[in-house]
């Protein structure tokens, strides 16, 4: 069986002896064109790109990503735009695997099947749905699998042992460990050592799955977690967009620099 683009990305990084760097930015932030330019630019150094489809009542996101989401919606973002952005992104040479991340109501309103068909058509490789936990996500995850799209299960510090086993069993090639009890972008309130301890417990249940860590990771903390398969940085990038706009600077170049810097810290 051939590896999925996501698994392949992890494999390449493993061969280079470093974790995969996953970025998260919000589609349409601050405009459709800018968000596409950002994706194109950070592809130079990121290994997998997560793109958020903005929702106006996000119950799992902290201030930074909320600001990005509201900004994108205010600038006229519609769900169909995300497919257009990804289709255009796919045309560049060094395009990386793309994971969509968002809330279930957007998929539900679009229609699960129609949504997945569009995902497939535009070249999306994975999906994370913040508010569709296991086992509620079983049917949708199966639909994803049929279309060869990875449905990425989330695990958290509150996930019990029994539950971890069950979720891992139903998971596809990648899973996402939430570092701490927090919304996105919170300050790390437990030590990286403790995070890795929890991480390793999960990793042990099935070593073949690519397990990434996210929430609260910045250029300051990323190197202390580099034994993981992959690390996600999101809020810090969203914050940088906000800052760039405020200072009338180009967010594209600023984000490019930031992602390069992040990569250096884990290489």
């Amino acid at each position: 069986m051939s590896l999925s683009p996501i698994s392949l990305a992890f494999k390449k990084c493993r061969e280079m002896g470093r974790p995969a760097l996953l970025t998260f930015t919000v589609a349409g932030d601050n405009t459709k064109k800018k968000s596409l330019d950002i994706l194109k630019s950070i592809s130079e150094n990121a290994d997998i790109l997560e793109i958020g489809f903005p929702h106006n009542t996000p119950i799992g996101d902290g201030g930074q990503i909320q600001t990005s989401s509201y900004r994108s919606i205010k600038n006229g973002f519609k769900v169909r735009d995300i497919f257009q952005i990804v289709r255009k992104y796919r045309k560049i040479k060094n395009s990386k695997p793309i994971i969509l991340m968002g809330y279930y109501n957007m998929i539900f309103q679009y229609g699960e099947n129609k949504f997945l068909t569009q995902c497939k058509k535009s070249g999306i490789n994975g999906i994370i749905v913040v508010d569709l936990p296991w086992p509620e996500n079983k049917i949708f995850a199966k639909k994803c699998k049929k279309k060869k799209i990875s449905f990425i299960q989330l695990l958290s510090p509150t996930t019990s042992k029994v539950r971890i086993k069950k979720i891992m069993k139903d998971s596809h090639d990648m899973c996402y460990y939430i570092s701490m009890l927090s919304t996105t972008g919170g300050k790390l309130k437990i030590s990286p050592k403790k995070i890795l301890e929890n991480y390793n417990k999960i990793k042990k249940t099935n070593k073949s799955k690519n397990l990434v860590i996210g929430f609260g990771i910045t250029n300051k903390t990323i190197s202390s977690l580099k034994s993981a398969d992959g690390l996600v940085v999101g809020s810090q990038l969203c914050k940088e967009i906000t800052k760039s706009i405020k200072k009338r600077q180009n967010p594209v170049t600023n984000l490019n620099k930031m992602v390069l810097n992040l990569k250096r810290r884990i290489s």
């Binding site: 799992g60 279930y104 508010d131 936990p133 296991w134 958290s156 510090p157 509150t158 539950r163």
Partner: peptide
């Protein structure tokens, strides 16, 4: 329809 963290 809740984040994983709230399941427990």
């Amino acid at each position: 329809f809740i984040p994983e963290t709230l399941k427990k």
